[in-house]
Simulated assay, not measured.
Amino acid sequence: MKKIMCLFVCGLLTAGALTGCGSSADTTTDSGNTTTDAAPDATGDFDTSSDISVVSREDGSGTRGAFIELFGVEEKDANGDKVDYTTDEAIIANSTEIVMTTVAGDDYAIGYSSLGSLNDTVKAVKIDGAEPTADNINNGSYTISRPFNIATKGDVSDVAQDFINYIMSADGQQIIEDNGYIKASDAGAFESNGASGKIVVAGSSSVTPVMEKLQEAYQKVNSGAEIEIQESDSTTGMTAAMDGTCDIGMASRELKDTEIDGGLTATVIAKDGIAIIVNKNNPTEDLTKDQVNSIFRGEVTTWDEVK
């Protein structure tokens, strides 16, 4: 009886001790670790020991080309040839929209996208302390940016030239700024030449969203123009322009020497940032260029290694 009573009293004392400790809200996790609600884990339910899901664009993507160059994931080998060192474990997405959807659906994913195409389904992180904004690109504090180019070969039709004039006019450049990009021209107001006919525009999925806005606005001032936009990637767009299967090619990068040698003339219509994006449940707010480089090369594979 005394033994039972002693155990009962010990149980009460133990319960009291635990209640006293409860003032600091200690709890024990399944793994046996103790946490304190008064000073919660900053990562919440985010498991930093989880593998990083790297999401990249396909070969031929202008965004990928600009990304690997700007972050040093691409290097020249001993023969002077450029080599892309993106990890073989990367998930490959063939458009900006798919990159964002993939990152939005995976707590541990990281990817990159056009700044102007960002939406609130993902979180854009700072790079070396600078937020990815048009203002920061203009003032030079955010250095991860690239041009949006259109390319033509030889003489274009009157209606294609009219559309290009619209894009570069104050009217077209305002649409570019309104959609989060940086304008490339200070030309005056648009005056149409009145031409009619069909224009085929093909290429970059990063340029496509703003091109669709430009198309919509232009056709309101020139209803005689019919514009077909074919979304693919920068390399496909440049090839189509060289082959003559489109009137205007779109590229979200500088043109390659082979494309210029193929007879293409480039016109920068806007400047765009490349945003590094993570899932909204990821507590990461700031990364360095070196950290991004290591992640996309596959040298850093879990979030707790990001230091």
Rank of each mutant, 00 (worst) to 15 (best):
G244P: 03
G224T: 05
G249Q: 03
A251D: 10
I227F: 10
N279G: 08
E231P: 05
V207W: 00
Q291W: 08
G224Q: 10
T235N: 13
E212V: 06
V278M: 06
Q215F: 00
A241F: 04
R297Q: 13
D257L: 11
E228A: 14
D290A: 15
T239F: 00
T302G: 11
V210N: 07
P283Y: 13
I227G: 03
A275R: 07
V292T: 09
E212K: 15
I274H: 08
K289S: 12
G224I: 05
V292D: 02
T239C: 02
T284G: 06
K271T: 15
K289M: 14
G224P: 01
D247I: 04
R253T: 11
A266F: 07
D304T: 05
G263H: 09
N281S: 15
E216A: 15
Y218W: 09
L255G: 05
L214H: 05
D286I: 10
A240G: 01
A241G: 10
V221G: 04
T236Y: 13
L255A: 09
N279A: 11
E305A: 15
D233T: 12
A251C: 09
I229Q: 05
G244D: 05
N281R: 00
M250E: 01
V210L: 05
T288Q: 11
T245W: 04
T235K: 12
T208Q: 11
S205M: 00
M242F: 02
M211Y: 06
L287C: 06
G298C: 04
G262I: 09
V200F: 03
E305P: 00
G244E: 07
E216K: 09
A241H: 08
G237M: 07
S204N: 03
A240K: 12
A240N: 14
I276F: 04
E228H: 00
I227Y: 05
A225H: 04
I260H: 01
L287N: 08
F296H: 01
G298A: 03
I229V: 15
M242G: 01
A225R: 02
N293R: 06
I229T: 08
V292A: 08
G263A: 11
G237F: 04
Q219F: 01
T235A: 12
D233V: 05
S204C: 10
E216H: 01
E231V: 14
T302A: 14
D247G: 10
I276C: 07
I274C: 12
E259S: 08
T235H: 04
L287K: 05
P283N: 12
A202H: 04
A270K: 12
A266H: 10
E254W: 00
K289H: 02
E226C: 00
A275T: 13
A225L: 08
T284V: 15
M238H: 08
V292Q: 09
T302V: 10
N281H: 08
G273P: 15
R297F: 02
V210P: 06
F296Q: 03
I277R: 13
S252K: 00
E212A: 14
K256R: 11
S206T: 15
L255Y: 03
K289Q: 13
N281I: 05
K289D: 09
D243A: 14
S232K: 12
E259G: 01
G298Q: 04
G237Y: 03
N281P: 06
M250L: 15
D247W: 02
V210M: 12
N281K: 14
P283V: 12
